[in-house]
Design a protein around this nucleic acid. Structure first.
Length: 798
RNA sequence: GCCCUCGUGGCGGAAUUGGUAUACGCGCAACGCUUAGGACGUUGUUCCUCUUAUGAGGAUUGGAGGUUCGAAUCCUCCCGAGGGCACCA
């Protein structure tokens, strides 16, 4: 009987589905485990081998947890709003809902062919009105609590996609999706006040078990910095320019104040004789793309306003400039220029002939700016202090003089939540001339996306929905006057922010999810996903979840207890897989050739789980050979005999190794251990009995479920292997009685001897010194010191 | 520029976290099986030197230093790769 994966995989997949084996049970008495993978965007290309990596890993965990006696929730769904379906519709004239339906069917078939133990009874789809009703409901709660608001702001505008982009969707000044340089455009946008949660989003990271890289990136993205806000009074006016700095110790070295071109006071600051030049400068910087403006190598430019302000520390008159290297949205849009101690300011001062005054000792300011800490000079009463002391003292003094205060600033900005696109959740707001922005009454949700013929963005900045008159024109829910629906839709993230909550109660039509169910299942115990989602998706969904916690909808302060990332699967050439490069590996092909178990085991074996790794077809074949070896071995072995003590020890060691490695997501070494055992077993076939065979299959079951089920049945079991308990290893059995003691001389390995594991130092020394090799090396020299590590080694220092 | 991760045979990678470097797999080679090829099985496989062979010695974890009885692992500097942030005041 040969190993024929296709027959057995089909057989077991059908049986699992018929028996609905993997459905989670609400409120079961068993302890719960919520294992989560990022739900896929069902693209036209179909499932990627990268999906398979994360899904298989979590499937292994889910299957192990069930065998350990947990009530496991391991769900799947579809994140199906978004641009590709809309772009496809524009090109081919096929409605996005049709495309999405087709793609989902394809994904579903592919996922099922992998033998993943998802609970299909909880499948969700973000484009289903029964789902996005609650996405809209969340928006209304945000609105009612003042966390969703409209603002006329300069947004990043992609002239190709004809869409406003979130700050986060601009990469290197270019549109994340199409790569077109982004320009700035003033537009009224819906915003979410994520900044209000900035501190909690940092501090609560202590409560969770995310890998370090994820935590660091969240913290850096939020970018909290503590500093001092200093008031510079405009000369001859009562206006004040508030400047944020982390280096108040350099206050005496200020030679100018520079404000961003968008700074609110700009018009008042520019004097008539500088008006023309200043206007020209402001116009020019407006036209620059974000890419041009943020290019670091670019020369710092600016223009004098004609006005001055007063340095509060020494009363000096300081010129006010406009410069587009100052970021309008950070730190109030104004900075103090200290050329001697800041690289950018130094450059700026050199170009425009500003004074360069040293106030911190330690560098040579005739050559370059000195940005380090040092002792203060030329700083009045503060001279002689260290920078660290001066930061404290000067801030203190400013507070007393009422000319400054401590301040905290964040790089994180409020989240632009509007998209001028068709294929997204409509924002449930009605604009009334009299009442303003009025929320759609909750009982009228969902605001269904109307069917349209034309998907093209209008280019005017309005979404295609604006053209659907019968949908747009409604009565104001408050006063009944004619009013218009909001035509912007929500970004892709809106649906994926909270999807893991819906899995807990996917069919609830009364609320987002029953609180008792949420309380039973949440938080997610283990969440795995791609590295591309560890800043934005994670930050956004934590924010929304925290808000829902605050209003009593979510049961815990954090949604995810543990978060891991799986490395990308690269093409054989080490590059990213992409259609245009023609180097894409299709999981279907691998399954057709070798079966799903081989694909699963290969993807777990190919390298460390969190690292990017290149596909290697020859290794796939190696894994197939391994599984076939397993098959042949088990078929050949006698199931009715006793297992020898040697084999027993090995299988218990394997038991420990595999159990531990799965918990640490070290799947590659777990599989190496399986291979080692099989190699050993090949040589000891006669010693293998029932216990070894059964234990081996139980351990292998989460990795290669079809193979394990089939062999389990063939050795005479009636019930599924997944109804069995995960095996516990015997601590006494895995201990090695005899160990190899390494003998070192001056730290170099010179010999090895077999000894009892609990040998004493005296005994070890005696035995070691008897060895010929050791005697040759010591050869009458004096032994100065002996280092003995019990059970490991003895080291003679001569 | 800053931050993070990493650098180990021909290749993917192990190394219980300071204690036998190169587990496991791929590839390659020899032998067995076979009409042959494939497949399968067994064995070998870091490099260098000496040795008919058994074996013996030396070197080796990107490079150079350091700490230590002992370093792939810790520290300093340098080189290289990948990722993140990027005029954040």
């Amino acid at each position: 009987m040969q190993y024929s994966p296709h027959e057995i995989e089909k057989k077991w997949q059908e049986r699992w589905e018929k028996e609905a084996r993997y459905q989670a049970e609400d409120f079961s008495k068993k302890p719960k485990q919520y294992i989560l993978v990022e739900f896929p965007y069902p693209s036209g290309e179909g499932l990627h081998v990268g999906h398979v990596r994360g899904y298989t890993a979590m499937d292994i965990v889910a299957r192990k947890r069930r065998m350990e006696g947990f009530n496991v929730l391991f769900p799947i769904g579809w994140d199906a709003f978004g641009l590709p379906a809309e772009n496809y519709a524009i090109k081919k004239g096929i409605h996005p809902s049709k495309t999405v339906e087709k793609n989902i069917a394809n994904y579903k078939r592919q996922i099922k062919s992998l033998g993943l133990s998802f609970d299909w009874s909880r499948e969700i789809n973000t484009t289903d009105p029964r789902y996005y009703k609650w996405t809209q409901w969340i928006f209304l709660q945000l609105f009612k609590h003042g966390l969703a608001y409209q603002a006329e702001i300069p947004i990043n505008w992609c002239p190709s996609c004809k869409i406003g982009l979130a700050y986060e969707e601009v990469i290197d000044g270019k549109c994340e999706r199409c790569g077109t340089p982004v320009i700035r455009k003033e537009k009224k946008q819906w915003m979410l006040r994520i900044t209000r949660y900035a501190d909690r989003l940092i501090e609560d990271l202590e409560k969770v078990d995310f890998i370090e890289q994820v935590k660091t990136q969240q913290i850096e993205w939020i970018g909290r910095s503590y500093g001092t806000e200093i008031d510079f009074q405009v000369e001859g006016s009562d206006k004040i320019i508030k400047v944020f700095t982390t280096r108040p110790d350099t206050l005496f070295g200020v030679s100018a104040v520079v404000v961003a071109p968008e700074y609110p006071l700009v018009k008042e600051l520019v004097t008539p004789d500088h008006l023309e030049e200043a206007n020209r400068y402001i116009e020019k910087s407006k036209q620059k793309t974000e890419f041009e403006r943020t290019k670091l190598e670019k020369e710092k430019t600016g223009v004098f306003t004609g006005s001055f302000c007063i340095n509060p520390a020494n009363g000096e008159k300081v010129p006010i400039w406009i410069g587009d290297y100052v970021i309008a949205t950070y730190g109030g849009g104004a900075v103090m220029v200290v050329p001697a101690h800041d690289k950018r300011d130094y450059e700026f001062a050199k170009k425009y002939g500003l004074k360069i005054k040293e106030v911190v000792k330690g560098g040579d300011i005739s050559k370059e700016a000195f940005v380090g800490y040092g002792i203060l000079v030329n700083s009045g009463q503060f001279s002689g202090l260290s920078s660290q002391e001066a930061i404290e003292k000067i801030t203190q003094w400013l507070i007393e003089e009422k000319k400054g205060r401590k301040a905290v600033h964040y790089k994180l900005r409020d989240w632009i939540f509007s998209r001028q696109h068709y294929w997204g959740e409509p924002i449930p707001i009605i604009h009334c001339e009299k009442c303003g922005a009025v929320p759609v009454p909750e009982e009228d949700l969902p605001v269904e996306l109307p069917y349209v013929e034309k998907y093209q963005p209008t280019g005017t900045g309005e979404s295609p929905l604006a053209a659907v008159k019968e949908w747009v024109n409604v009565k104001c829910p408050k006063c009944g006057a004619p009013a218009k629906r909001e035509t912007d839709t929500m970004p892709n993230w809106a649906g994926s922010n909270w999807y893991f909550m819906r899995y807990c109660d996917p069919n609830n039509s009364q609320e987002l999810a029953d609180f008792k169910k949420l309380k039973y299942w949440l938080p997610v115990d283990w969440y795995d996903g791609g590295p591309e989602h560890i800043t934005l998706h994670l930050l956004y969904s934590r924010f929304i979840y925290k808000f829902l916690y605050d209003i009593g909808v979510a049961p815990t302060p954090e949604p995810y207890q543990r978060r891991t990332i799986h490395g990308i699967v690269l093409a054989q050439d080490g590059r990213k897989m992409s259609k245009s490069l023609g180097n894409v590996v299709n999981p279907n092909e691998i399954i057709e050739k070798y079966g799903a178990d081989t694909l699963r085991v290969y993807e777990m074996f190919m390298g460390p789980f969190d690292q990017a790794i290149a596909w290697n077809p020859e290794s796939v074949n190696g894994v197939f050979k391994f599984l076939r070896k397993v098959w042949n071995l088990i078929i050949e072995c006698k199931n009715n005999q006793k297992t020898s003590p040697d084999v027993l020890k090995k299988i218990h060691q394997l038991n420990k190794k595999v159990s531990d490695d799965i918990e640490q997501a070290k799947f590659n070494t777990a599989i190496a251990a399986f291979m080692e055992f099989v190699n050993f077993a090949q040589l000891h076939k006669k010693e293998i009995g029932k216990e070894a065979i059964e234990r081996f299959l139980l351990l292998l079951a989460p990795f290669a479920p079809h193979l394990a089920e089939e062999l389990w049945e063939r050795i005479g079991h009636k019930k599924s292997i997944f109804e069995e308990r995960w095996p516990q290893y015997n601590k006494d059995l895995i201990k090695e009685e005899r160990i190899t003691l390494v003998i070192q001389i001056n730290g170099k390995v010179r010999d090895k001897i077999e000894v009892n594991r609990d040998i004493s130092q005296e005994e070890a020394k005696k035995l070691a010194l008897k060895q010929k090799k050791v005697q040759n090396w010591i050869d009458g020299k004096e032994i100065k010191k002996i280092i003995f590590i019990p059970g490991k080694l003895i080291n003679f220092v001569i």
